[in-house]
Design a protein around this nucleic acid. Sequence first.
DNA 1: CCGTTCACG
DNA 2: ACGTACGTGAACGGG
Length: 641
Amino acid sequence: MEFNRLLSSAISAYGEPNLDNNNHKKKDIIEKIKPIDNKNYKLIKYVNEIDEWMKEAEEFGEIAVDTETDSLNPHEANLVGISLSTKIGKACYIPIGHKSKKCLNKKEVLNKIKPFLEDQSIKKIGQNIKFDFIVFYKNGINLNSMEDTMLMSYVLDAGKNRHNMDTLSEIHLNHKTIKFKDLVGTGKKEINFSEVDIDKAKDYAAEDADITYRLYKKFFKSLKSEKLTNIYETFEKPLIKILAFMEIEGIKVDHKFLKSLSLKFGKKIEKIQKEIFNISKKEFNIASPKQLGEIIYNDLKITDLKKTKKGSFATSASVLEDLAFKGHDFAKLVLDWRQLSKLKNTYSDSLPAHLNLDTKRVHTSFLLAATSTGRLASSDPNLQNIPIKTEDGRDIRKAFIAEKDNLLISADYNQIEMRILADLADVKELKKAFKNNEDIHSLTASQIFGVDIKKVNKDQRRKAKAINFGIIYGISQYGLAKQINVSNYEAEEFLNSYFAKFPEIKIYMDNTIKFCRKSGYVNNIFGRRSHFSSINDKNYNIRNFQERAAINAPIQGSASEIMRLAMIRLDEKLNEQKSLKSKMLLQIHDELIFEVKKSEINKMKKIIKEEMISVANSNYHSFSIPLTVDINSGYNWGVLH
DNA sequence: CCGTTCACG
DNA sequence: ACGTACGTGAACGGG
């Protein structure tokens, strides 16, 4: 991610300086800018002072809202204050959870503002308003008619910059905000927001509402002039509430089972560690690539020196796998040690720490504005990268379970990105194959190796599969050669015959890059833009990197849009049929996880499959090929595939 | 706080 | 001559 941000933050094709990459220059500019005037920021001292703001909100039909809490985790955050803005430059702060005498009664304030926060006809404008929604929901308020400046920025500028308020304020308002850290301090001296001086909290919080409102006015116009309002309305806004409820619902995790896994992994790790030290003849930190490199290249001298781009010892899995293949047990042991350490540290040890004490479930956060393509991301904890590829890994998945009398359902789109490529690039042979429900990797193999589809062997299919993946990633012969362990020459031959059989794909790639060079962005099927401002960079590596990303973005991005539509439709279906108790819990890019009452299983399977497939035909696009969905149910996530 | 590594799609 | 597969987030080491 950092690498990508670095590349995309170089000077753009149009010469706009990118703020991320010019830190000292940025400071010089900002220092000269006058702060947004805060003399109209009002601290609310009596509950009936809020009337004025509610009246204006009703009159204008919109109001910027921001919550202050004592935690970044909305599922355990206490409401400390609320700021409102009804006009540019006019904002107030209502303290309700401060440890101070000036603080208002929380219940009284919430009762007062609940009706207008829930009023359908008044737009509530926020920055990352999913956070505020969850906080309000936990306080008995169901926010609706939400607008989100973070998502507006994301639709306008995905790939250009991050979409947090500090960044947006600097870029669009030339204003450097008061930093959260300035209020609460850092490290040991860090205090809780509820302990922050109320007047300081007022300046900070009211400014946030003011800035949010200013950004909204600006982005509203930009979306219109860029003809992107529809993307924001259709693919972003509906997801706010859907994801909020998925996060609130959470998923049940068997922490006792995880503890037993940690013990098991720990024992294995210790055993392997001893074997490693037996070979190295001394103890060292296996987790340190620096120390591991010393052992491999200086002490044991297993192989010729290999270094990373930055000049440190190369100890990545691909290097170690190569050594293991050549018969070096040491490399194999390190690989096993790494895998088990990863599973223990990142999953079996850490997931229990994320259990919510009240709900006894794990509540992830889905990020709507993190990727350049339209995909979601997940954090705290990331539930989109739970292991599956090895047996030990799959055990982690088995810790995700359903409540009593329930089962989990998983539903995943089959080969969705290849299907999109076929549709997007209008690839005749691929379209035909998908319509006939053929095995796409075998078909590819038969085409490039010139054998009958029934006579394709395993190795040919494996190579063809790697090529299909490579195509989606914006392939190079060098990358393909490395991936499937063939010579550059062979890889080039494969690609030549691939493009000869599927000429439309080459045309798509060339056209996409051409369009991006001229415009600085690419569109996916549904009209979302991803920006690649360094696609004309004079540096070969930066330029090529952006070209591959530009080829990939419409494919990955269109798939994510299909999933967004499916989630919206499924949410509608579940709300429509009030008797259904089933809940959508997780999205893992091409897969959805539901928790379902056993009595509803068959009905739900039918609904999920139907809705996911029917997205192929919507108001926004009609696919020339069918979508297919694999669906499974079981007591835990590990048995679903 | 950055670089490396590795978990997923 | 060059030397990377696309998109993420988390943990760790080391300065």
